[in-house]
């Protein structure tokens, strides 16, 4: 197989590789290819960074304050659930 064909295979499986979701032999094949392929090393690093950014992203939008009526509606449902147990 050509180097670029191998790059494409690595490219297709890279998230599963980084998430440790691949079988050991597939992992080994990817590591074997990547270590001698600078573009794949760079790309792997860039995907790692993207994943880190996604994990650090905390959607910090604060919802509008819960009004008394909505809170009471939720608490009634909670009390009913507790009473029925």
């Amino acid at each position: 197989m050509s180097a670029s064909g191998q790059c494409r295979e690595v490219f297709a499986l890279l998230s599963q590789y980084l998430d440790v979701e691949l079988p050991p032999d597939a992992c080994g094949a990817i590591e074997e290819h990547i270590k001698d392929c600078p573009p794949c090393i760079e790309f792997t690093e860039s995907l790692k960074k993207t994943i880190a950014l996604c994990r650090q992203y905390s959607p910090g939008e604060i919802p509008p304050e819960l009004n008394e009526q909505s809170r009471a509606e939720l608490e009634r449902a909670y009390r009913r659930m507790l009473a029925s147990r």
């Binding site: 939008e61 919802p63 509008p64 909505s70 939720l74 449902a77 659930m81 029925s84």
Partner: peptide, 21 residues
């Protein structure tokens, strides 16, 4: 939509408490 998100949050929590058991 922000307004939809507020309603979804309320509807979700209502279902959550109804079914928490």
């Amino acid at each position: 939509q922000r307004e939809d998100a507020e309603e979804v949050a309320q509807e979700t929590l209502l279902r959550v408490f109804e079914r928490f058991a």
